[in-house]
Simulated scan of single mutants.
Amino acid sequence: MTITQLQYVLAVAKYQNFTLAAEKSFVTQPTLSMQIQKLEDELDILIFDRGKKPIQLTEIGRKLVEQSKNIVNEANRIKDIVEQQKGFIGGEFKLGIIPTVMPTLLPMFLTNFIKKYSKVHLKIEELNTKGIIEKLMDGNLDAAIAATPLQHEHIKERVLYYEPFVAYIPQNHRLYSNKKIDTTDLAIEDILLLEDGHCFREGVVNLCKSNKGFNDERFQLESGSFETMIKLANEGMGMTLLPYLHSLDLKGTEKDNLHYFNEPTPAREVSLIYHKSELKLHIIEALREVIMGVIRGAIAFQNVQIISPVAKR
């Protein structure tokens, strides 16, 4: 039994196709098939049911795949241990970022990080919080940038910044004339929300749940992007809430529709998160330093009230 054989098994389990698994593993299909067959012969089991399309794992195959993930991940960590000991900041680093942070934060730090740490091969993936947690737990991400606190026992959180909520209120809305607003002014029935699965949506809902009279059965409209919600608000469909960094990208008359909260300003906590057993801490620290270096000048709010992204029951 070899690590390579287990890697091939994981590839077939992922892609459910021997040809595609071989392509993704950069080997020929006969080579991959032969190695998996040798492993099955050695263990005297069938890992895959080849009679089904797409290929399916057998019952024992599912158990073997779960253990193989642990073995392959631990084997990969040997190189991480050596590089950390040498102080080498380089190699592949897989980073997940939630959709409501990606478009504003990534352009702020990516060029600086690449220039400073040219030997790090960043692989960045946009994922919602649920997908990030799953991949961190499976070892398929080294770290992620997400809204916190997540209250997950196996995940460590290191705060990067606090990002205030900003209200986008069009002229025809009841709150437009208010110079500043309070959280008690919010009514969930006229707030346009991101669709389910976005942690920023949960933050807005949690903020409104603190108000008396909250009714979670009165959601009118949900969208997949802030841009769509802004356009709908402009059409008189309600107001919406934006993360502060996103509000900086608004142009012209749309900036006149921005309204800020009285202190303490509701805000989300954005953190660099990773599994507690993660070993690439030297790269995580380098990433954190670069991000915090560029974000300090963009967000100067201090008196904030952190709104949790964890859905309230």
Rank of each mutant, 00 (worst) to 15 (best):
L242F: 07
K212A: 14
L281Q: 10
F165Y: 06
E202K: 14
E189V: 08
F219W: 12
M237I: 09
H259Y: 04
H282Q: 14
P170Y: 00
F219P: 09
T240F: 03
L232P: 00
Y162I: 05
L160I: 06
L279C: 06
Y274E: 07
V159I: 11
A167L: 07
F219C: 08
F214G: 04
T183F: 12
K180W: 13
R288H: 10
I169M: 03
D216E: 14
H246G: 12
I181H: 04
K251E: 11
S277C: 08
L175T: 05
R288T: 10
M237K: 14
E263F: 06
E278Q: 15
L241R: 01
K251D: 12
V270H: 01
L242G: 01
M229H: 07
L192Y: 09
M237H: 15
I283P: 08
S177E: 14
S277I: 06
L192S: 05
N262L: 12
F214C: 07
F219N: 01
Y162H: 09
E263Q: 04
I181L: 02
I191A: 00
Y161Q: 01
F200M: 01
L241N: 09
K179Y: 14
I230E: 03
I188E: 06
F200Y: 09
E222F: 10
L160V: 06
T183E: 11
E222C: 12
G197V: 04
H275M: 00
R218F: 13
V205P: 05
L232Y: 08
D216R: 15
E195G: 07
G213A: 04
A167P: 04
V270N: 06
L193Q: 02
E235S: 14
S277Y: 09
T240I: 08
R201D: 00
L175I: 06
S223D: 12
T265A: 13
L281F: 00
D185S: 05
R174M: 14
N211S: 10
K251I: 07
L221F: 15
V159A: 10
L241P: 04
N172R: 13
L186A: 00
L281A: 06
K179W: 12
P164W: 07
S271P: 04
A267Y: 00
G203Q: 14
E163H: 00
I273T: 00
A286H: 05
G203K: 07
F219H: 10
M229C: 05
A286E: 05
E263S: 13
D256L: 11
N172W: 10
L241C: 00
F261E: 01
A267M: 02
S223L: 12
E278G: 11
L279W: 10
L221Q: 09
I284Q: 03
E217V: 08
H275K: 05
H198N: 15
L287S: 02
F214T: 00
L272I: 03
E289D: 14
N206D: 01
S223Q: 15
V205S: 02
A233M: 03
I273M: 02
S177Q: 11
S247R: 02
N211Y: 05
V205F: 05
T240N: 03
D216L: 09
D216K: 09
I188N: 04
C199P: 12
Y168P: 00
A167V: 02
T228K: 12
L250S: 07
L279Y: 11
Y260G: 03
E278R: 11
Y168I: 04
N206C: 00
G197T: 06
C208D: 03
S223T: 11
S210L: 14
V204G: 03
A286K: 01
D185N: 06
L258S: 06
Q171W: 09
S247N: 01
